[in-house]
Amino acid sequence: MKVVVLTTSYPRHQGDVAGRFVADAVERVRERGVEMRVVSPQQFRHFGIAYGSGVVGNLKRRPALSALLPAMLASFALTARRAARDADLVHAHWLPAGAVALATGRPYVLQLWGTDVELARRAPWLARGILRRARVVICASRALAAAARELGARDVVVIPSGVDIPPHPGEEAEPPEILFAGRLSREKGILELLQASEGARLVVAGDGPLRRQVPQALGFVPHEELDRLYARAAVVACPSRREGFGVVCAEAMAHGRPVVATSVGGFLDLVVDGETGVLVPPGDVRALRAALLRLLSDRDLRRRLGTAARERARQHFSWDRITERTLAVYADAA
């Protein structure tokens, strides 16, 4: 089988975090003998709309770029049509790539990640046609699947992003640390976390528009370094106001770390409250602080929740399981 992957985000070099979860999925499927060809902004002109803050984020920050969006999509579509001439299936990541997949004339599956659902709600008439023509719409969480059906998708399956399961959990640092990894923006809840963690040891791996308000931030780090940060963390905080899936949450669980997350979106599929971590209302600094301090003060509780989190990640989110489910979708859709 030959599959062409269309994406507006994909690693440009070793250590690049952009679209890393897409690249990881491509490599796992490729290892199973499927011929995978990737069309990313490295192959077409994107005029600065891709990368950085992502397509939606870049258009929000620089509205003038919207005038170049048709030119970007035209370049994307031309490259995609060439790549997909002899393809059995096209796999489009994010809604804009779905429009390009439609232009190839090949059968396609569309994968939604969250920000594109926000985009779809602004232009439902446009999104509906793309969603309905997809052979299958893949969503990373039940919340996204429900949104896709509301927008007109017919055949919807939930397949979360996969994670690597380390051989052994690491040793916690002393004193215990809270880890935040992700984009430094309001929707990720970093400002609430800064308030909630006052007086505790907070490690921040990430970058974004609020970087100046987080002077201790390490910036985006290579995944090998992020693995080391997970291994030494006592607690991982995921305080997003909205979240399509929650790759950081799943990775933390795989490392045997309890997660304090907000009760939104994909976190509801990942965290079993009181068993593998703690869920708190989004934007509630007091509840977030109480949950963090409770875990920081109780090593036995951290160990119990972390052990259960790791087992849940192994059972539901390992790459072997996710790849098998993806291949089954390909077989049905091609």
Results as ranks from 00 to 15, higher is better:
Val38His: 11
Cys249Asp: 09
Ala252Asp: 14
Pro11Asp: 10
Arg32Glu: 15
Glu172Ser: 06
Ala290Tyr: 09
Leu95Cys: 03
Glu150Ser: 12
Ile130Gln: 01
Phe76Gln: 00
Ala18Pro: 08
Gly256Phe: 12
Val278Asn: 02
Arg294Leu: 07
Val157Arg: 05
Asp320Thr: 03
Val235Arg: 01
Ala196Asn: 04
Lys60Tyr: 14
Arg304Asn: 04
Val38Asn: 03
Lys188Asp: 14
Ser161Phe: 13
Met253Ala: 05
Arg299His: 09
Val271Ala: 07
Ala18Ser: 14
Asp300Phe: 07
Cys238Arg: 06
Asp320Asn: 09
Phe76Met: 00
Leu301Lys: 02
Val3Ile: 03
Phe220Leu: 02
Ala181Cys: 13
Glu31Ser: 03
Thr276Gly: 06
Ala333Lys: 01
Leu202Ala: 03
Arg186Glu: 15
Phe317Asp: 05
Ser40Thr: 02
Asp332Thr: 11
Leu184Gln: 10
Ala92Arg: 02
Arg211His: 13
Arg310Gln: 01
Leu6Cys: 12
Val109Met: 05
Pro281Phe: 10
Arg211Gly: 06
Ala120Asp: 09
Ile159Arg: 00
Arg286Glu: 13
Ala231Phe: 12
Asp284Trp: 08
Leu296Cys: 03
Leu268Val: 05
Pro166Gln: 07
Pro281Ser: 08
Arg201Gln: 12
Glu225Arg: 09
Asp155Tyr: 11
Leu131Gln: 03
Ala134Ser: 14
Arg294Thr: 04
Leu295Ala: 00
Pro282Val: 00
Glu31Thr: 01
Arg212Val: 13
Pro169Leu: 03
Arg128Phe: 15
Gly283Cys: 07
Ile322Leu: 01
Leu65Lys: 00
Arg32Ala: 14
Leu78Phe: 13
Cys238Phe: 09
Leu89Thr: 02
Asp24Tyr: 13
Pro160Cys: 07
Asp298Trp: 07
Phe47Ile: 00
Val29Asp: 12
Arg135Pro: 14
Glu198Asp: 15
Arg149Cys: 12
Asp16Met: 06
Arg106Leu: 04
Gly129Tyr: 11
Ile165Val: 01
Arg12Asp: 13
His13Cys: 10
Leu102Ser: 12
Ser318His: 10
Ala143Cys: 11
Arg132Asn: 11
Ala217Val: 01
Arg122Cys: 06
Gln14Met: 12
Arg325Cys: 02
Ala71Asp: 08
Glu171Met: 08
Gln43Lys: 14
Ser240Leu: 06
Ser240Asn: 04
Gly98Cys: 03
Ala80Asn: 09
Ala80Cys: 11
Ala71Arg: 08
Val136Pro: 10
Val204Lys: 00
Glu311Ile: 03
Trp125Val: 00
Gln14Ile: 12
Leu218Val: 04
Ala328Pro: 06
Gly199Ile: 03
Gly265Asp: 14
Arg310His: 03
Asp24Arg: 11
Gln195Thr: 15
Arg81Ile: 05
Thr8Leu: 10
Val235Asn: 05
Pro96Leu: 04
Arg30Phe: 14
Gly54His: 05
Pro281Leu: 11
Ala196Gly: 14
Glu224Leu: 10
Ala291Tyr: 09
Ser66Gln: 08
Pro41His: 13
Val236Cys: 05
Arg186His: 13
Glu243Asn: 00
Thr79Gly: 06
Leu119Cys: 07
Gly256Tyr: 13
His91Arg: 01
Ala101Arg: 01
Asn58Leu: 06
Val280Ile: 02
Ser66Thr: 14
Leu268Met: 14
Pro258Phe: 09
Asp164Leu: 10
Ala254Asp: 02
Pro70Lys: 02
Leu95Trp: 15
Cys249Leu: 10
Glu150Val: 04
Val100Cys: 08
Leu301Glu: 10
Val158Lys: 03
Pro96Gly: 07
Pro222Ile: 05
Arg321His: 12
